[in-house]
Nucleic acid binder design. Structure first.
Lengths: 336, 336
DNA sequence: CTGAAAGCGCTAACAT
DNA sequence: ATGTTAGCGCTTTCAG
């Protein structure tokens, strides 16, 4: 068994409180401090955070629930958050709910049982029912990518509608009129926003919407492949396509390759996320780039603020909206 | 404050042991079971795993320490492991050590303090010093991608040497003689093995090794870009290049694009990992594919076996070696 | 500055 | 089958 504080108390002849005080930054006589440190060394003592957590009712652990770890956007966000949280002594338990509402709810319950100090969630269930129970604990929740009515908490979002509008306008300005979109699942907030941006850009330009140019993918690579094939097949006159997340962008490129379509001569493309992938494409892809690292650090910062300063429930909750950026490649053709 | 077992004992008029027994699969009279369930419902009771962990000396938590979460190979492994571990009630704490030995050691200490039941590690420190302390707890360790002398534990590896040899032989059989390699960091085990495979393939074919064709990257995208540029510049006669991980493969493709090199006419390429990326390249990339999901599930399975069956320290430790596969694309030219 | 003692929420004997 | 009780390792009064 691992050494305990009792062991080191016995060994040094000191009382428990002194040892505890040593670990919690209290004042300990120089002579005793040395004795304690020797004992720690010899006994290979390591604080038991579990016991500490039980006593202090704070586990120094944050639960993170995301739809797919295997999605670059999510993975990048987690990397950034984990970095800052751990540097503040917080552990991160990541739960991948596979874009499944039931699993998402179970993940939250799992985290409640483990008494995490806070939850960071990129929600699948737009109703937020899964969060109600955690909300009752009074511990902080920070949402990524979506605000939820009825759950009072901070949210860090991206201006998805503007991102999509900008991308589509880019096509329009270059003379495109038959512009396809590979959107996300209808139930997903970000997907709805991006779709709204598409509509708005067309509307502002007075271009009529054609149903067959709109395709709802599922944010996966295979979905991207299928959607691209479908769009191309249904719309021989389509000159441009906007793809609304990274996985589907990769899928669309696969489709383009496998169909032998030339970019941008036969088809102009604007993708989403992952600048490096865009650079690796030939020709380089124009993409909408989200500030992933900024989101990650912002989310972690907000969470820490709640945790350390004990931000009260009564206070106002923030909704931060970060801006995206279009990184130009050579995948958009200028017509005429 | 959250409800406790005491609360539900009071509410039902039952004793603590009965409640505990209810939660741990013991026999409880039908009438009481109903009362208990009602109380749970009304009080929104959720088991406190922290307290349980303190008592049972088992946190049902596994620590995972990896070099880069932001590396697709790692992210995929984690996804798979987390899936099976959580379905068995285990939480996963992931620590990204940024390929830094000091951070790796700190991560392990962090996990020791949190009393995780086991550690899964894709080690950066080839000496394994960081694991010594955890080893003393007698709890299980499973290593990914590398075996470490002196640390007795199971390991799940990939046959890297053969993987590289196969790839290089593929070039040789198609008539290539000036074959470059973008290897990994010299200190990394998998990188050494892949490099060894390169040497072996050349040796078997009687092709002399030329130093300038060997480049040590750092397993990052930028490293891949730089390495490709360097190889091309130093070796005007190079006709093929083998890239030894995914990130550098993407980097190499970026380099190829930015230098305007035609694949496979001017340069043949074999990459590593990520079939989907290979498909998205134009032309489709030939790659060495690792069985990531297989590794993930195997690692998780081994860990669970230790945890549930209490596999003894005295027993033999396994070293499993999984095979890779070459997925052919159109990026390898046949010379004359 | 240090020691003694209570208790966080749970499990696991041991009684009944 | 159910109740009682003693800790698990720590923090935190409260005394001294």
């Amino acid at each position: 068994m691992a050494a305990t504080m009792k062991d080191i108390a016995r060994r040094t002849g000191l009382g428990l409180a002194t040892i505890s005080s040593y670990f919690n930054g209290g004042n300990v006589r120089e002579k005793n401090r040395i004795k304690i440190e020797e004992a720690i060394e010899e006994l290979h003592y390591e604080v038991n955070e579990v016991a500490r957590g039980l006593k202090t009712n704070a586990t120094k652990t944050i639960g993170v629930v995301i739809p797919e770890l295997n999605n670059t956007f999510c993975a990048e966000i987690i990397t950034g958050m984990e970095d800052v949280l751990r540097s503040h002594g917080y552990a991160t338990i990541v739960c991948d709910c596979r874009t499944d509402k039931k699993l998402e709810r179970e993940a939250i319950e799992f985290l409640i049982r483990r008494r995490v100090d806070g939850v960071i969630n990129m929600p699948v269930d737009e109703e937020g029912n899964h969060l109600k129970k955690f909300q009752k604990t009074g511990k902080p929740i920070v949402l990524i990518d979506r605000k939820i009515q009825g759950i009072s908490c901070d949210s860090v979002l991206v201006d998805n509608e503007k991102a999509a509008e900008d991308a589509v306008r880019q096509f329009i300005e270059r003379g495109h009129r038959y512009i396809g979109i590979i959107g996300g699942p209808k139930g997903i907030f970000t997907a709805q926003e991006r779709m709204a941006g598409y509509y708005r850009a067309l509307e502002k330009a007075g271009i009529p919407v054609r149903e067959s140019l709109i395709c709802h993918g599922d944010y996966t690579i295979q979905g991207g492949v299928r959607s691209l094939e479908e769009l191309v097949q249904k719309n021989p006159d389509m000159t441009a396509v906007f793809v609304t997340n990274y996985e589907m962008t990769m899928g669309a490129m696969i489709g383009v390759n496998e169909l032998g379509i030339q970019i941008p001569e036969q088809l102009s493309v604007i993708g989403f996320d992952n600048l490096q992938f865009a650079r690796a494409c030939n020709p380089k892809l124009t993409i909408v780039s989200q500030p992933t690292d900024g989101i990650a650090r912002e989310v972690a910062r907000i969470m820490l603020e709640h945790l350390e300063n004990g931000k009260k429930e009564s206070e106002e909750f923030f909704t931060e909206k970060l801006q995206t950026e279009i990184i130009e490649g050579k995948s958009v053709n200028t017509l005429k």
